[in-house]
Amino acid sequence: MQRLLIMRHGEAAPGFPDNARRLTPRGMQEADTMARWLAQRVAKGELLMPSLYASPYVRAQQTAQALSDALGIGHETLDFITPDDAPAAISDWLLEQEDGAPIMLVSHMPLVGNLTSWLVEGSYAQGVGFPTAAIVELKAEIWAAGCAQLMSFTQPSQLASG
């Protein structure tokens, strides 16, 4: 079984152009919270070190950098995981990847919701709602429509101490 983690970037400030929007201080905090949580899971052996990929948009790159820093790994940019890209194209890309380490994608709504719905349900007519910095973990034998199983859905508010 292969594993895939799909993450929405942290909260971003409004602005134009869309691809240049930056994380807010809250967005940075969300990204850091999730990055620490992932690093703890890797350290405990609950998750293998993922290969990390991010959208080229600034807010996704900032979120991926927080993950890179916490995990001690680099990340690559994928130009086809921006907000309105097609889940089927990403599924095709996933099929070309070698088995092994989990893959982690940092992207945007509506793509993260549509991709999750596409892989789990086989359709993205409804999509899945993603709070900022939320991460879903999926597993599958093959990354095709309707073939994945949702393992977990975690958001920063679940991890906040207090």
Results as ranks from 00 to 15, higher is better:
Pro83Lys: 04
Glu76Tyr: 03
Gln65Glu: 15
Gly74Trp: 02
Leu78Val: 05
Ser55Gly: 11
Gly15Arg: 11
Ser55Tyr: 10
Tyr57Trp: 13
Ala35Ile: 08
Leu78Arg: 14
Gly27Glu: 09
Pro83Thr: 01
Phe80Met: 12
Ile81His: 07
Ala89Ile: 00
Phe80Asp: 13
Ala31Leu: 04
Gly27Met: 05
Ile81Thr: 03
Ala88Leu: 09
Trp37Arg: 12
Leu52Glu: 02
Trp37Gln: 04
Thr33Ala: 11
Pro83Ser: 03
Asp18Cys: 08
Glu76Thr: 08
Met28Phe: 15
Asp84Thr: 07
Arg36Phe: 07
Val58Pro: 07
Pro25His: 06
Gly15Cys: 12
Asp69Leu: 14
Pro17Lys: 10
Ala64Ser: 04
Tyr53Gln: 00
Gln29Thr: 14
Ala31Asp: 01
Asp32Arg: 15
Gly15Glu: 10
Ala88Trp: 01
Arg41Ala: 15
Tyr57Ala: 07
Lys44Pro: 00
Pro56Thr: 04
Asn19Gly: 10
Gly10Glu: 02
Gly45Lys: 05
Ala70Asp: 03
Gln40Trp: 03
Gly72Ala: 08
Met49Ala: 13
Thr33Gly: 02
Thr77Met: 08
Gln29Arg: 15
Met34Pro: 04
His9Ile: 04
Gln62Asn: 04
Gly74Arg: 12
Pro50Val: 02
Leu78Phe: 09
Met34Lys: 05
Asp18Val: 12
Ile90Glu: 02
Arg36His: 11
Pro87Phe: 06
Gln40Ile: 08
Lys44Arg: 14
Met34Ala: 04
Leu47Tyr: 03
His75Pro: 00
Pro56Val: 05
Ala60Lys: 04
Val42Ser: 07
Thr63Leu: 02
Ala66Gly: 00
Thr77Arg: 13
Ser55Asp: 10
Leu71Pro: 05
Leu23Asp: 09
Gln62Arg: 10
Trp37Cys: 06
His9Ala: 03
Arg26His: 11
Pro50His: 07
Arg22Gln: 15
Ala60Val: 01
Gly74Asn: 13
Gln62Gly: 01
Leu67Arg: 01
Met49Pro: 09
